[in-house]
Design a protein around this nucleic acid. Structure first.
Lengths: 194, 194
DNA sequence: CTGATTTCTTAAACTACATTAATGGTTTTG
DNA sequence: CAAAACCATTAATGTAGTTTAAGAAATCAG
């Protein structure tokens, strides 16, 4: 499997590209290998890239004033990820993005993405659909965070994410669910007994 | 002020339309007046329209199994709102959308929106930017719900929403913040004393 | 391979927020 | 305009989830 087959398949889900468009698009990408535990973005840095995960897993998290980590998303293979707020508004990053295992990404700079929108307007459609889905997902998460207990959110998490996330620690799952690792441990214990 | 001046200004924030494009776009809209407390969408109905608030305020909320309401968003004048999940995937609505005061909306059906994307591809760009911003907003809300206390979230709410929302009750604000009206009352009391 | 660091678990004490219930105020409706 | 329904507030009591701490298990660095 060539190293950009996956991203082309991802795009083909929503738009159909001509050969030259494909070539042009690929010419705007950079590929990068990220070691396990290496960061591709740190808080307060500038956030120039939109990243596509070709293999591996990235984790995006927010660090609050008290120094607690809150996981915003796990980006598995075939996902797009960046600190969107900072990417779009060209402001210092609020999020940290780190590899939970060896990860290969394809990334496009903001400059090149803007160029792409001008040169191949079809991509406006692609990203319109992508953001539409992202918006829906976040809204569902807001609803679930408001209306479900921690134990129920944990069940949803297990259902949503495949075992693929083996590298992910309990601590990180807890920080995604909005609870402490200690309480997740209790939930898991109760669950195992039931 | 003509009744579609506001929506055209809203669109002009991100794209520039030719005269015929404007005319065509307007031809796809329906305008509607919604009485205070009337619903434009109820759970389990089909959700055919994307709505623009021309004046007034709408409130979108989710009703959980226990019969509790959780407010997803207040859509003020100049906002777009629908149950996006159900609009996009053509599934029965999960949300209820109700007017908190007399409200005028302009709405476009899914069929017409798809037509609009084909006929005036510029709108792909417009909605790409709209969804991008919506995604960012929801993600910020997820972060705040995870990392802030109820009292802190209330401060953010006050800062974010203008007094415009006079018609909104404490109960509704509480359901937006993810707390009970009783606890919001305590927060307001403490705040007044401080 | 070994000591050091990090992770997971358990438990006791604590706190933010929920529940229930009662009261007075406001809005809705016939 | 009166009765009904709903809303905001206060207070007592209850609970989901946190904090702190400590030990056992896993992972990491040299």
């Amino acid at each position: 499997m060539k190293h950009h087959d996956l991203i082309l398949k991802n795009i083909a889900k929503h738009i159909t590209l001509e050969k030259e468009e494909t070539t042009y698009f690929l010419s705007l990408l950079e590929s990068k290998t990220v070691k396990s535990k290496a960061y591709i973005l740190k808080e307060s840095e500038s956030c120039q890239y939109l990243n596509f995960v070709n293999s591996g897993t990235l984790r995006a998290y927010f660090l609050n004033k008290q120094g607690k980590e809150w996981t915003i998303m796990f980006a598995l293979k075939d996902w797009w990820v960046t600190d969107m707020h900072c990417f779009v508004k060209e402001q210092p990053a609020m999020l940290n993005i780190v590899a939970t295992e060896k990860t290969e990404i394809l990334r496009i700079s903001k400059i090149n993405l803007d160029l792409l929108f001008t040169e191949v307007p079809k991509f406006e459609r692609f990203f319109r659909i992508l953001f539409q889905n992202a918006y829906i997902r976040e809204q569902v998460r807001v609803i679930q965070n408001l209306s479900l207990t921690a134990a129920e959110r944990y069940e949803k998490f297990l259902a949503k994410y495949p075992q693929t996330i083996q590298q992910v620690t309990q601590k990180q799952i807890a920080s995604y669910l909005g609870i402490t690792p200690e309480f997740l441990s209790i939930i898991r214990n109760r669950r195992a007994k039931a």
